[in-house]
Every structure is written in structure tokens, then in C-alpha cells.
Design a protein around this nucleic acid. Structure first.
Lengths: 210, 210
DNA sequence: TTATGTGAACTAATTCACAGCG
DNA sequence: CGCTGTGAATTAGTTCACATAA
């Protein structure tokens, strides 16, 4: 099978979230067009997207809900969670540590790191907070490959450099700074203001979808 | 001029963030290819994107940094901030209220709302927290058009309904729930797990860009 | 009839190739 | 040269039209 298009991958989490809601409501099957309706897409698009997974739908009934969930999670690599460390326990870091949903979404935040002595050696949402100077050693010992940056923007580049030198392969950067990493390291920038930009563009220009 | 492509709009905030960094470093001009290098794009793409703004670059020197910043902010509608209300002061709501950057990015969060009596009538990051039953009245009086949902997922749909009935036109939903709104209301879903999906796809499948 | 599944047509977005200007 | 700017070609993504299965 050909590589799944990124545009498709981006829609999978929304499908999964909807499926979880439907499952909670007691549904057992779901049709591509009902997913499409609920999410403001078209039926064909949903079927095309789902065709990249193993899940097979049946005419008249649609897709088996559990089977489809599993197939989507498999395609996303969410059935086996990857370990990660988080650096920077400010209010955003706290929000991520307290958000319980990542374990079900392929990410297992093992612990957090901060420079603030008042925070070090305390816990937040069941995750221990270590001092920064333990970072390299712990990455070496645990083999963690993903690092999450939730520091102020001034510290982001230095933290990224530390992560790379420690052996981290994928960085999820929430700090509002453009950081650079060597080739081979995957950097995923999360920028709330990007979503905001899309919202205001849609409001101003009257775009229904986005 | 033709409507700016959404793909282009999505890149503008990253350009702006980089420009702010360069400005802080004392630069006065910037070339499309240096932006491209820094952001992992190509020079042509950056030039195409910038061509949708008023900014004009000059051969040899590139773009005037201040002029380009202004043009990008203008294209994004960030030069005049829009007022917004936030509902749900949990850890994510708190992170957004404390994040000072929105004023410079076209969004002015006037106040927050919550059901928790312990939080009501206190302040968070200079923003007052009102009880939910004041929401409709305050929207009517202030004419605010954007609502931000940072409640637990169970409450998200009810809050969205309340927002719509109060006259809100654009909803920025951070709750991990698929909510529905009537036609004509712009709904922007923010899903951290979508970004996470892209990161893991890139890690697993060896995609350099995403 | 009601759904999936898919090749073909179309549209959006990106990249190429090169003209133009200081 | 070194940079912008842009029509043309290419690729990625979406939608159409219809075959197929229960």
C-alpha cells in the first residue's frame, strides 16, 4: 500500500474522536456518510481516507465501529504508545501533564523537567518533575525518543539543542519560537496562533471549511 | 486579488514569528530564501506566499523586515484585534489566559466564564472570571463575536449551543470533543492529538516535512 | 435500496524554469 | 551576479460517476 497522505492522517484523529463519542452512545456500526455529515466532509472523502486502513465496510450497515477504531489507531501508530519527556512546567506544560488523554493517543509522558527548584522533585498529574541536569542521563538510560518543549520562547532553542545532544529524535515544540534542529531530527511545531489565523481568515473571508 | 490559499495562511504565523526573532536580533531586511532555509521550505514557495501581501521585495536586499511584518499582520487581520470570551477555566483555559501573546495576534480575550463558584469573581492573568449565567447578557452588551471553549469535553456541546444562542459567530474549540454548530457559524477545532498524529507519522514513515 | 469502493476528471498547491531588475 | 516575481509544468488532494455487493 502506498504511503498514507498527510492530509488524510490529519483527519484521522477527528474520526477517532467521533467514533469514541458514538461508541459511548452505544452505536456498533457507522457509515462513511454519517461520519462525513458530522464532520462537515463528504462521504467519498471519508471512504477514500478509510480505504488506507485495513478496515472494511459492509454495504447497508457501514463499518464496524470497534474494528474501524482499531484500524485507525493502528494507522496512526497509537496502539503502542511511545515514551516522551516534557521540559518546562509552566501553565502550558501543566495543562499537558494533566491532560490524561495522551496514553490513549500513542504518547506516554514519563516525566517532566524544569529549572525551577521549587518545582523540582514535586509531581504534577502523577508525573515527577526532575531537574534539567538529569535530562541527558535519563534519556540515555531510558532510550526515550520524543521530547516536548513547553518552556518560554527564550529557552526553547537551548532545550532543543540539549534534546538533540541527548539522543532525542522527535521534538514537539509548543514554545512560540522558531527553533532549528539538525537534519534527521523531526521537529513538529505547534502554534496556537496558526489555528487562530485560520479561524480569523474563515470569519473574515466567509470560508465554511478549513 | 484572488483569495489567499489556506495553505498560505497557515504558514504566515510562522513567517511572522521568525521575523520577530530576526527583528530582535537587529536585522532590517530578510530574503525569501533565508526565510525558507530557516523554516524548511523552498524560496519559491515563500515568494509565492509573500506575493499575496502588499509587501514588495527588492533584488539583492530582499524584503524590508518591518514592512513585511506589517503586510503579513494585515493579511491575517492581526492589526486590529477582535474581542473574545473564554469559557472554562481549567488548566488549559488558564494557560490561554496567561499566554500574553494573543493581543499581538489579533485576539483580545476580554474575560472568562466558569461554573465553579470558587473561581467566579476572581481573576486570572488580568482577566476577570464571571459566572456562566452572565454570558448571554455580556455578549449582548459587548457584541463579542468569538468564543473560546476550554471546558471538559462533556460540557463542550452545551457551551457551544449557549454561545450560538448568545450571538457568537466564531467558535474556537479546544475541548477534545466533536461538537456541531448551525450553518453560518464558523467552528475551528483545535486538536493537540492531530499534531501528535503528524509527528508520529513523520517519525515512523521518515517524512522530513509536515 | 443503501451502502462501499475505485478509476477518471478535476482542482488546489507546489515546484520548475526563466525573465527582470538593481 | 543575487535576488524577486511569475507563467508553465507537475504533483497532491478532492470530487465525480459509476460498478458492486448485501
Amino acid at each position: 500500500m502506498i504511503q498514507i497522505p498527510l492530509a488524510t492522517i490529519r483527519r484521522y484523529p477527528a474520526y477517532l474522536r467521533l467514533l469514541e463519542q458514538l461508541e459511548a452512545e452505544g452505536c456498533a456500526d457507522v457509515s462513511a456518510s454519517s461520519i462525513a455529515n458530522r464532520l462537515g466532509l463528504t462521504g467519498v472523502q471519508v471512504r477514500k481516507d478509510l480505504a488506507y486502513t485495513q478496515a472494511e465496510g459492509r454495504p447497508k450497515t457501514g463499518y464496524d465501529l470497534k474494528e474501524l477504531s482499531w484500524a485507525l489507531r493502528e494507522a496512526l501508530g497509537w496502539n503502542n504508545a511511545t515514551d516522551a519527556y516534557l521540559v518546562g512546567v509552566g501553565s502550558l506544560g501543566e495543562a499537558l501533564l494533566r491532560f490524561g488523554g495522551f496514553e490513549n493517543h500513542g504518547l506516554n509522558i514519563l516525566a517532566a523537567f524544569d529549572t525551577d527548584e521549587k518545582k523540582v522533585n514535586t509531581s504534577m498529574g502523577k508525573k515527577k518533575i526532575f531537574p534539567m541536569d538529569k535530562f541527558k542521563d535519563l534519556v540515555a538510560r531510558t532510550g526515550v525518543k520524543i521530547g516536548i518543549i513547553t518552556t518560554p520562547k527564550e529557552a526553547a532553542q537551548a532545550v532543543a539543542d540539549l534534546m538533540v545532544s541527548a539522543g532525542i529524535k522527535g521534538i514537539w515544540n509548543f514554545a512560540p519560537a522558531e527553533i532549528s534542529v539538525p537534519e534527521g531530527i523531526v521537529l513538529q511545531q505547534v502554534d496556537l496562533t496558526t489555528e487562530l489565523a485560520v479561524l480569523s481568515a474563515r470569519l473574515q473571508m466567509g470560508r465554511e471549511n478549513g
